[in-house]
Amino acid sequence: MSATIRSLVIPVSDLDAAKAVYTALLGEPHTDQPYYVGYNVDGFEVALNPGEEGGGPVAFADVEDLDAARATLLAAGATERSAPRQVAPEARVCVLADADGNPIGLRGK
């Protein structure tokens, strides 16, 4: 399996406050919705995700087959933090954790 990390999702409790800080740092967002604020940083996605539980930012690896990548990581000892869910017409995501509880995000079809 070969994966490329192309995005970082940052959970926030106050979207407006976080948006002010990240807009000052990264410029205007390309997507500004109550459920998601996204910035393109030289082709890398930095996103603010309101209402998510803490635990810090999650780097998402793009994979061809989400289910196969998930199964491979679970067999290797990862645990599931959030089950696969549809986030766009062509994209699903899930979050696993390594043995120390560090999040591993997967994004694919």
Rank of each mutant, 00 (worst) to 15 (best):
residue 1 M to N: 00
residue 2 S to F: 13
residue 5 I to G: 02
residue 6 R to W: 04
residue 8 L to V: 12
residue 8 L to W: 01
residue 8 L to A: 15
residue 11 P to L: 01
residue 13 S to K: 04
residue 14 D to L: 08
residue 16 D to W: 05
residue 17 A to I: 04
residue 22 Y to L: 12
residue 22 Y to M: 12
residue 23 T to N: 06
residue 23 T to P: 03
residue 27 G to W: 06
residue 28 E to A: 15
residue 28 E to W: 06
residue 29 P to K: 08
residue 30 H to L: 12
residue 34 P to Q: 08
residue 34 P to G: 07
residue 37 V to G: 03
residue 38 G to N: 03
residue 39 Y to H: 13
residue 42 D to F: 14
residue 42 D to I: 12
residue 43 G to D: 09
residue 44 F to K: 03
residue 44 F to C: 03
residue 45 E to A: 15
residue 45 E to L: 12
residue 46 V to Y: 07
residue 47 A to H: 04
residue 47 A to C: 09
residue 47 A to P: 01
residue 47 A to M: 08
residue 49 N to Q: 14
residue 49 N to T: 10
residue 50 P to I: 01
residue 51 G to N: 11
residue 53 E to M: 09
residue 55 G to W: 02
residue 55 G to Y: 04
residue 56 G to T: 07
residue 57 P to E: 06
residue 59 A to G: 08
residue 59 A to D: 04
residue 60 F to Q: 07
residue 61 A to M: 06
residue 62 D to C: 02
residue 66 L to V: 11
residue 66 L to G: 07
residue 66 L to N: 08
residue 67 D to M: 12
residue 67 D to L: 05
residue 75 A to Y: 08
residue 75 A to W: 10
residue 77 G to Q: 06
residue 78 A to L: 10
residue 78 A to F: 13
residue 78 A to V: 05
residue 81 R to P: 07
residue 82 S to Q: 13
residue 82 S to A: 11
residue 82 S to V: 14
residue 82 S to D: 09
residue 86 Q to G: 08
residue 86 Q to S: 15
residue 91 A to F: 13
residue 92 R to F: 11
residue 93 V to P: 10
residue 93 V to N: 06
residue 94 C to N: 03
residue 95 V to K: 00
residue 95 V to I: 00
residue 96 L to V: 00
residue 97 A to T: 14
residue 98 D to K: 06
residue 100 D to Y: 05
residue 101 G to M: 00
residue 103 P to M: 01
residue 104 I to S: 10
residue 105 G to T: 01
residue 105 G to K: 02
residue 107 R to M: 13
residue 107 R to I: 15
residue 109 K to G: 15
